[in-house]
């Protein structure tokens, strides 16, 4: 994490009230994953990773997290725009409601999804009666659970970017006759693109690690709803070494993807 201030600023004497907690914070975040590396069964690692169940879970995790991020972009960016650019009454309340999934324990989120979208849920029973669609225990259900938990991250990031962007460009476009939709598409969106990408990355990472809402709402079935975090949890019941291997695989894939994205697009945002 190198900030934009690289190579600038006063170099002499780092103030210890900042340095000591910073190092403690770093150790707190870095040591647990390092512990995984120390305890990893390196010798059996390749054959454990090549197991079809592992690859299946990894593939499912990547696919669902990516679809969930796409859903969040489609719904979350307009929502962020609504919060940042309109004078809708009750916007503060809306913003508070949007952050609820952030503070809600994910398991509770999963139960809430069941109560609404389940076969006997408020909306779900109607879906089931009319179309025979039932989301729990399906891959679509996994995407639902991940999107529910991850969307607030995207909305908050994009809203922040929208508030920081200079509105005079949008006003100028409007005075030149552009409609609000055109302004959004041609001026606003390109301006906040780095913020949207940063939000999408955060959202994807959160979706990839999602456990509680997924296992509660979508259940656990290999190849259909068993994502990596679920596979890790169940492996822990009988074979901690396998759980460590799975965790490392998930960690490696997410770090590679995030690092690649960072270099490519997010840059110093």
């Amino acid at each position: 994490m190198t900030g934009p201030a690289r190579g600038r600023g006063p170099r002499a004497r780092l103030p210890w009230p900042l340095l000591v907690p910073a190092v403690a914070g770093l150790a707190f975040l870095v040591l647990p994953p390092a512990g995984l590396l120390v305890r990893a069964p390196w010798r059996t690692l390749p054959q454990r990773l090549a197991e079809p169940r592992v690859l299946e879970a990894l593939r499912l995790s990547l696919v669902t997290a990516t679809i969930a991020t796409a859903v969040c972009l489609l719904l979350g960016v307009p929502l962020a725009w609504l919060l940042a650019r309109t004078t809708l009454p009750g916007r503060r309340l809306l913003r508070a409601l949007i952050t609820v999934p952030l503070v809600l324990p994910p398991v509770v989120g999963g139960v809430a999804l069941l109560l609404v979208l389940g076969r006997r849920g408020l909306v779900g029973q109607w879906l089931y009666d009319a179309f025979g669609v039932s989301l729990p225990f399906t891959t679509a259900g996994v995407v639902c659970a991940e999107a529910f938990v991850a969307m607030p991250f995207l909305v908050i990031a994009v809203e922040g970017a929208l508030r920081a962007a200079d509105q005079r460009y949008e006003e100028a476009a409007a005075t030149l006759g552009a409609s609000r939709w055109t302004v959004f598409r041609r001026v606003t969106l390109p301006m906040v693109a780095p913020g949207v990408l940063a939000g999408a990355v955060l959202c994807w990472a959160r979706a990839l690690g999602e456990f509680g809402a997924t296992i509660t709402f979508a259940g656990n079935f290999p190849g259909r709803t068993q994502t990596m975090p679920l596979a890790v949890y169940l492996a822990l019941e009988t074979d901690p070494d396998a759980a460590i291997v799975l965790s490392l695989a998930l960690l490696a894939v997410s770090v590679i993807v995030l690092a690649a994205l960072r270099d490519r697009w997010v840059g110093t945002a």
Binding site: L114, G118, R120, P136, T216, N220, F221, L234
Partner: peptide
């Protein structure tokens, strides 16, 4: 062929209680 393999017995029962 189950639709789900739950992580513990209470979670399994919850799915029945909710009618899922």
């Amino acid at each position: 062929t189950p639709v789900t393999l739950e992580q513990d017995v209470k979670a399994t029962l919850t799915k029945v209680e909710l009618g899922e």
